[in-house]
Design a protein around this nucleic acid. Structure first.
Lengths: 200, 200, 200, 200
DNA sequence: TATGAATGAGATTTCATTCAT
DNA sequence: CATGAATGAAATCTCATTCAT
């Protein structure tokens, strides 16, 4: 997850960038395993194989790593989606593919996603980062629709679809769907339907 | 706000209940103002006008008050929705009314809602409470649709709509919509559309 | 010194004011024994017989206790000087008495005085407190001179005398005078002379 | 500032000396800007353009650089005063010139002077350095007075004048005088008076 | 000689929780 | 029932100092 690299750690005490990446990676894992609020900076440092103080050479704050983790997370998501979008495929199969990819991505980061929401509600910077990512989503989606020859939908419409899509993915990732007796297969159907509403 | 059942009882026991209610109410306000994770139990007690130790006479945990706050919150929501549902009105106007009511409710509890999500992802009890409430939502919704003579939709379909609906309301409550240049008016349109998809 | 009270500590876990005073007293002693910059809040708490966290119930900062200690210190000094001033004595003996009293006071607080200077240079609040005390000194001195029938001297003159006086006292308190082979007796002579320059 | 002896030597040794000097200079600037206790050795190294470890190649301690800075500072002061003393001028103008020069010097090093006092009170080595410098002051002053034909004053008298003089200069450098509504011009008058008391 | 990433040691601070009253 | 002073335990953060290169 998030690069791998953990192999042979502690090797040369070199390379600030490597250390930083290792810390981000470790933070991502810890956040996602125990939740942001149950993870302290000591844990992160230790998980990456460093002393507590080392954390503060690279980040001022737990908040700051979180932002970095989020940046990486977004990049990853776009990389995955980018692949899908460039892959030539019929418009027909697109929604299904997108749904599957997004669902997988969310399932990989359940706690992280949950905390993101809580943090964004409190921390303006996290919110700003999230909004930035959202704008990009909207723009790409809109452009995609143009290409597909669909009638250009309102911003509100696109946003609404993106939010719905995301929330439904989260419900699967968090186990809500399953607990409510809704199978992943049927969720996928709903996801496709949400998208198709847009693609027309 | 969060006014609590004032069915009075004996003289003495009332005191205890009153205190407890005051603490719950104070907790709700603090959680919603500063966020669950930035609120400590001493603060809650102080906000309710009690000493720190008093908090622990009534709850074992911060988690426990949260659960109580959530219970009250749910009750409130259902009370509001219940009013709407019993009020005789044409099916036509129903989606619009529901959307407006839900939106108002969410706007009143932005931080609380955000933390709820984060907590549910970590804490089984919170998740359980949330699932219980969700089941009820699904059931009521399903029944409502029957009454309306709509074709009975799948559980997945109902869940998907509820999640979407909720998430879009949150986006307004958290200021996401506004920051993205999407007006509340157009969000309401989307909310109605989401519901109408269901009501047929 | 500074109240005494340390007797029987830990008694009743009562009385916030008592605790606060004990902390101030302990802080004063520690500051004066090891210096402000070599004293940490844990030490202060421990010296007063409390746990580290207790310190923070009463002060936000090491800086804050310092300010309190300073306030107490100033009060003490004025109490001593006040006694002298009210005691009826010939103008002749006044300078000698003042010199002796001040010297004793300074000798009791050598490190504290040294740190006060360093802190005032950095921290506006400490400087402000010091200036306030200085203004009072100047005013009292000026009034005293009027009463003594001396020609009213300029503010600059009074300030200059006060500073000189103080610095010479410090030199004894810090052991500078002794190291330079200047006896306390001859320093006292100089202190009297400095004052007599003013009293005419 | 604090320019250091640039008597060059061999090619190689120069580098080491240069680095050392750069560190001393940087330390002086940092100490005077942020105060000794708010300056860490990494900062000093960085300010001089070196890595943290380099600092420890040249000094064992923060204390040690401070001593070095002090040595340079004293040298500077004497250089300035030496110029004055050798410059042929009437005894009349001497006190005024000395006062002006000293005042300027102090104004250039406010924080450094304040910390010097605090450190001397705690650290025997700093005290020793200060005493050494003080002895020199006393000796030069005494000699000067002989030359001027004044009656040879007691050591106590000379010390008292030096301390007063210094403290009044500091009061200007630290902004005390100004805050108390005492102009620099009137302070200068007092400084001259203090000296004239000695020169008779 | 210089580096700079890394850290041990410890200071600062917070907070849920208790206990004597 | 209520208190509120007190704290154990732990998280956050700093900094002088080292070590492999």
């Amino acid at each position: 997850m998030l690069r791998v690299a953990n192999t042979q750690a502690r090797q040369r005490p070199r390379d600030s960038v490597r250390t930083r990446d290792a810390l981000i990676e470790a933070a991502a894992a810890e956040f996602n395993r125990h939740g942001y609020f149950n993870t302290d900076t000591n844990r992160i440092a230790a998980a990456a194989g460093y002393a507590p103080a080392s954390f503060y050479k690279h980040f001022t704050d737990k908040r700051e790593v979180f932002l970095e983790v989020y940046a990486v997370w977004v990049e990853r998501e776009w990389a995955e989606i980018g692949e899908l979008l460039t892959a030539r495929m019929g418009r027909r199969r697109m929604p299904g593919r997108l749904a599957k990819a997004a669902l997988e991505h969310h399932k990989r980061w359940p706690l992280f996603r949950a905390d993101l929401t809580a943090l964004a509600a409190t921390d303006p910077q996290v919110m700003a980062a999230r909004l930035k990512s959202r704008r990009r989503q909207i723009d790409v989606m809109t452009e995609l629709l143009c290409h597909a020859g669909a009638a250009s939908p309102s911003r509100a419409r696109v946003l609404s679809v993106l939010l719905s899509f995301e929330r439904i993915c989260d419900a699967v990732a968090w186990g809500e769907a399953e607990s409510l007796g809704v199978s992943e297969r049927s969720v996928l159907r709903e996801l496709r339907r949400v998208l198709r509403d847009l693609f027309g």
